[in-house]
């Protein structure tokens, strides 16, 4: 009987968004009469932070404090069309649509302010704290709130913007099959340490060291949160979760969360993350998306670590104790591969 330590590595290039139909996203922005801005989206925040990030993006692009922006998501009755929350596309696709909508709203805001200040709109700038001023002359200014009130009640003008982001569908070259399926990738590399019990086949993940490249981290705490939680989900997929434990035999599907296994709070894995920021050219303020790829590379890294520990190559998920034990038996015992 022995506990075998193993280490596995995996790297990933993860495409942001889909190519199907160009994967468009839309956003609508409008102001209230007191100079707050509402962003209407049909895009859905399931907890990934898209609502926070699009709020930051809108505030930055309009030039107002983030507190003055409200993002209304997830209602396809009131928000303009969106493809959905998948493929790590939220920040990139929706963020770009928000930038376009915000730019139009900002233009109208500056025009309304210019009329009040009797200057050219091109001479105006925002301070991000709720004021609009003449460039080089901060004293000649008007608040966003005053501007919005004037636009609404005096000028009869909307401060609103429409935005859509669409990457043209890439055709396939009939001769070579070549195409451009995506415009930007996120990247990650992980080293995962495990311990494998060669009598029971149980695998315990003991440490994760990772580097994630996500473009500019628009909200670093949210990025870190998503990477930690996503990697946990990767561990869960790799070792525990299945709706059909004996697939393709469909019997014994779990009927509750006591039998659909996920690691508990007593199995928190120390996870050390390095976030690398290489802003993408076509991304909103350079931000790509951590999304799915925070979980995906965990799976092959664990599979590799198990192989390294006991010499068992599992190519079906999840890597259950039974699969590991059967592999050890088939090999005539654990065959640690050692460190190279």
């Amino acid at each position: 009987m022995a506990i075998h330590k193993g280490r596995g590595f995996a790297a990933i290039n993860y495409p942001i968004g889909m190519n199907l139909g160009g994967d468009p996203a839309q956003a609508l922005v409008h102001s209230t009469p007191d100079g707050k801005f509402k962003v209407a989206l049909a895009a859905i925040d399931l907890g990934q932070g898209m609502k926070s990030v699009t709020r930051q993006i809108a505030a930055e692009a309009i030039g107002v404090p983030v507190e003055d922006v409200y993002v209304d998501t997830a209602d396809s009755d009131t928000g303009p069309h969106d493809m959905g929350s998948f493929a790590s596309r939220g920040t990139h696709r929706v963020g770009n649509a928000v930038i376009r909508a915000s730019a139009e709203a900002r233009k109208q805001m500056l025009e309304a302010a210019a009329e009040e200040l009797e200057v050219n709109a091109t001479d105006l700038d925002t301070d991000g704290r709720g004021n609009i001023h003449v460039k080089g002359a901060p004293g000649r200014s008007i608040t966003v709130a005053e501007t919005a009130t004037a636009a609404q009640f005096k000028q009869g003008r909307t401060l609103a913007g429409r935005g859509i982001f669409l990457i043209p569908l890439s055709d396939t070259d009939p001769d070579t099959g070549e195409m451009t399926p995506v415009t930007c990738f996120a990247h990650a590399a992980l080293v995962i340490d495990v311990e494998v019990d060669d009598e029971t086949g149980e695998v315990e993940v003991t440490e994760i060291n990772s580097a994630y490249e996500v473009g500019r981290a628009l909200n670093p705490r949210l990025v870190e949160q998503q990477l930690i939680g996503g990697a946990w989900m990767g561990v869960s997929h790799a070792l525990y979760e299945t709706t059909e434990p004996y697939y393709p035999d469909r019997s014994h599907a779990p009927v509750d969360f006591n039998r659909y296994l996920m690691p508990g709070p007593g199995q928190i894995v120390p996870h050390h993350i390095a976030v690398l920021e290489r802003p993408a050219e076509d991304a909103p303020f350079g931000g790509k998306g951590p999304g799915e790829m925070c979980a995906n590379p965990v799976l092959p890294a664990i599979a590799n670590a198990v192989y390294n520990a006991v010499g068992v190559r599992c190519d079906r998920l999840p890597i259950t104790p039974e699969k590991v034990l059967r592999g050890i038996r088939a090999n005539g015992g654990a065959q640690p591969k050692g460190r190279r």
Binding site: E202, Y240, N258, R259, L261, M262, P263, G264, P265, G266, Q267, P321
Partner: peptide
């Protein structure tokens, strides 16, 4: 149990 600290 495979779940810590509490699993069936």
């Amino acid at each position: 149990t495979r779940i810590k600290p509490k699993g069936v």
